[in-house]
Design a protein around this nucleic acid. Structure first.
Length: 313
DNA sequence: CATGTTTCCTGACAGC
DNA sequence: TGCTGTCAGGAAACAT
């Protein structure tokens, strides 16, 4: 399942392939498309736009777009300006973003295809349909769910706070803080007074975004903290070990192209290798690499959770 | 608001 | 062989 390192890997790979390309045509799949924004909004935002940059915010892949200057219709090949809209892709559990030559046969469960001006195609493939596509309007809030049916008035009026668009320059800012950049003090503050399990808090995307089940378990192992501990009771020293451990494990995973459990692949369809270096995730019943004790599996926050009962307290 | 539970969706896999 | 049941899990929706 794609978490921060996997999403980062995909974003980098896609960026290398599509940056500067112009979107000539947009195809969106059948009825139950995984769209957060209405199909017309997505098609309208993308068709004719140029892709300025692709990057990652939390677990979301963000496409910065440019559009042609108005007025000067004669269009020398050069009058582009930043678009007020960004294209957002969330891979969910099984989503893939692939860049293929248009001639390559489309995989099953292909839900969206952007035809680019160099004859390649950016394809969104997602068997389980947990992934989401959306357009963020500068200065607006990208709401979660509901709007998948209707982008309508009701959705706009409702409570808004989920994903911020516009921290500073009106860009999509995600739901929480970036694990790789948050300060020690801000990190500690996230968990202050929280009665939920530290693992559940780590998975809460409105606190930290980008950390999922794999790296929550791996980070807690590095910190020597048991996943079920109440967040508020984890000491400052432990939280700092947790922050440092998370940064280390996330960076190490990015270097290895992410973890390919289930069926994750990058923009070229290549698997990652970090799963080979997991200390606890999906290693229940196997010996701890540090102390040799048997790795345990429990359920925390509704998620399967792995830890070493000796190394983690 | 904080927290816990249910739901979506389909491939993979265990068991018969 | 082939069918059935169970599981996985990100995040929205719903419940408490």
């Amino acid at each position: 399942m794609p978490e921060l390192p996997e999403v980062e890997t995909v974003a980098r790979g896609v960026d290398a392939r599509v940056r500067g390309r112009r979107v000539e045509e947009v195809w969106l799949g059948e009825k139950p498309e995984p769209l957060k924004s209405p199909a017309a909004v997505i098609a309208n935002a993308l068709t004719g736009a140029r892709i300025a940059r692709v990057h990652r915010v939390g677990k979301t892949i963000v496409f910065d777009l440019e559009e042609r200057e108005r007025g000067q219709a004669k269009a020398k090949e050069g009058n582009w300006r930043p678009s007020a809209r960004q294209f957002l892709v969330h891979l969910g559990m099984t989503g893939r973003l692939l860049v293929n030559d248009a001639g390559v046969e489309r995989a099953a469960h292909t839900h969206a295809v952007l035809s680019l001006d160099d004859g390649s195609e950016l394809r969104f493939v997602d068997p389980r349909r947990f992934g989401r596509l959306a357009v963020a309007e500068s200065g607006e809030v990208v709401r979660g769910a509901g709007s998948s049916k209707e982008g309508g008035a009701k959705a706009t009026a409702k409570k808004q706070k989920k994903e911020r668009v516009g921290s500073e320059r009106g860009e999509f800012a995600g739901t929480g803080r970036e694990p790789l950049r948050i300060s020690a003090a801000d990190f500690r503050a996230l968990f202050r007074g929280r009665k939920t399990a530290i693992k559940a808090a780590l998975l809460n995307q409105s606190l930290l975004h980008g950390v999922g089940n794999i790296y929550a378990d791996e980070g807690l192992f590095r910190a020597g903290v048991r996943p079920a501990r109440q967040a508020a009771r984890v000491t400052a020293a432990e939280l700092e070990r947790l922050r440092v451990g998370l940064v280390a494990v996330l960076k190490a995973a990015i270097k290895k192209g992410g973890s390919s459990v289930s069926d994750y692949v990058d923009a070229e369809g290549a698997r990652g290798f970090f799963q080979l270096e997991h200390n606890v995730y999906q290693r229940a019943g196997e010996p701890c690499r540090v102390c040799g004790a048997t790795i345990k599996r429990i359920v925390v926050g509704g998620r399967s959770t792995h830890y070493c009962g000796v190394c983690q307290r």
